[in-house]
Structure formats: C-alpha cells, structure tokens
C-alpha cells in the first residue's frame, strides 16, 4: 500500500489540477466569446438595443 504521505500528496495535487483546469477553461471560454463578439461587431452586426440607440441619436 502507498504511504500516508502519498495519499495526502495525490489529494492536494488532484485538487490543484481540477481547480486550475476549471480556471483555465473559464478564462479560455471568456476569451473565445469576446473574440466572437468582436468578429460580429466587425461585420457591422449590432445588438438590437444598440441599434435602437444608434437610430435615436
């Protein structure tokens, strides 16, 4: 059987891996969504609320 230290180490390493993985996934997701928004805006597509505001002014 593994030593007690190994059980503790694997627990902390797995927790770090899962939480860092979640953080990396969330950051990458945010970056991808911002890129998509920027591409749409570059194509001249505006949100309805922005289009209405633009029309009024």
């Amino acid at each position: 059987m593994m030593s007690h230290e190994a059980f503790v180490f694997i627990s902390y390493a797995a927790t770090a891996a899962v939480l860092l993985g979640l953080l990396a996934f969330t950051l990458a997701d945010g970056r991808a969504r911002k890129r998509e928004l920027a591409e749409l805006e570059a194509q001249g597509i505006r949100r309805r609320s922005q289009a209405v505001q633009g029309g009024k002014s």
Partner: peptide
C-alpha cells in the same frame, strides 16, 4: 456573452 453572440 455567449447568449449575446447567439442573439446577434
């Protein structure tokens, strides 16, 4: 942001 992209 995802929902905004989808709506646009």
């Amino acid at each position: 942001l995802r929902r905004r992209v989808q709506a646009m």
